[in-house]
């Protein structure tokens, strides 16, 4: 197996593990979500990562946090993918509109994202869903850029020209040929977008802007940090959610390598 394939397999296995944790947390978690023990227990065979300030088992908390983390990332990257694809296609138009939209992509790419999101998040306090929408509204620029490049390339390719000469309508060409030919970059952008959305969400949650009712891994680190996990020497509590984020992000990255390299040239879909 080539190195690329090995990475893809590792990515899929990691992601499957997280997916199972997200789908059926109650079957995997060692304890119930509201089962209380002594607070600040050290890691032990009974509690692999110890317990937190309220005496909840941290391993359990983390497994239950998988779903919110994954769903937040999935939703925000799906929305940003749709936005990016639409804007990218529009920016590929020739003329005034295309140029304007292309400029908009540049502006969005340049904005200091984290600071803007913190500011908007402080004004719009609406919990998990508004955070998802905010993140996706500010994450589509790189998708739009890639889609724009591909659409322009396709527009000027010989087979599109041929189709046009044969008298197929613009709509037909768009739906049957242009969109199918962007699918590979859409998949790889989706995976990379998941990556950056999860990173953004966890950073915001770590800073305390997350939804405390549906804690993600980032929120967990924030709680650990603020409740004095350092002084209690609960290092596993502080670090393990971050390590999970890293593994999740790597799994998406490994899978994206597979998709981004599979089709290096534009293929004709007829």
């Amino acid at each position: 197996m080539s190195r690329r394939k090995v990475l893809t397999v590792i990515g899929i296995v990691l992601l499957l593990g997280f997916a199972v944790m997200a789908a059926i947390p109650s079957a995997i978690a060692p304890y119930g979500q509201k089962e209380m023990f002594q607070s600040w227990l050290n890691p032990s065979p009974e509690h692999p990562l110890g317990t937190n300030r309220l005496g909840y088992d941290i391993m359990t908390e983390m497994i239950y946090g998988t779903r919110t983390t994954l769903v937040t990332g999935l939703l925000s990257s799906l929305i940003s993918l749709a936005l990016g694809a639409a804007v990218g296609a529009l920016a590929a138009e020739e003329g005034f509109i295309g140029r304007m939209v292309d400029g908009l992509i540049d502006v969005m790419a340049m904005l200091p994202k984290l600071v803007v999101l913190i500011v908007l998040g402080s004004f719009i306090r609406g919990g998990g869903l508004s955070l998802i929408i905010l993140i996706s509204v500010f994450s589509w620029s790189s998708t739009a850029r890639t889609v724009r490049a591909r659409v322009i390339e396709l527009k000027h390719s010989a087979f599109t020209e041929n189709l046009r000469i044969e008298g197929f309508s613009d709509f037909h060409i768009l739906v049957r040929h242009t969109i199918p030919n962007t699918s590979d970059i859409l998949v790889s952008r989706f995976l990379l977008g998941l990556n950056s959305c999860i990173m953004m969400e966890s950073t915001l949650s770590f800073l305390g802007f997350g939804d405390t009712f549906h804690p993600t891994w980032g929120t967990m680190v924030n709680m650990a940090y603020r409740n004095g996990a350092f002084i209690r020497q609960a290092y596993a509590y502080l670090l393990s959610p971050g390590i999970c984020i890293m593994l999740l992000s790597l799994s998406f990255y490994f899978m994206s390598i597979h998709f981004s390299s599979r089709k290096e040239e534009v293929e004709e879909v007829i």
């Binding site: 990556n195 966890s202 950073t203 680190v221 350092f230 502080l238 670090l239 971050g242 890293m246 790597l250």
Partner: peptide
């Protein structure tokens, strides 16, 4: 570098504090 890129900045900061500070 790819692995380093996947590390959230707070994880990096907390680990450095833990190892070199604590």
């Amino acid at each position: 570098m790819i692995v380093l890129n996947a590390v959230p900045s707070f994880l990096m900061a907390l680990s450095l504090v833990l190892v070199f500070g604590f």
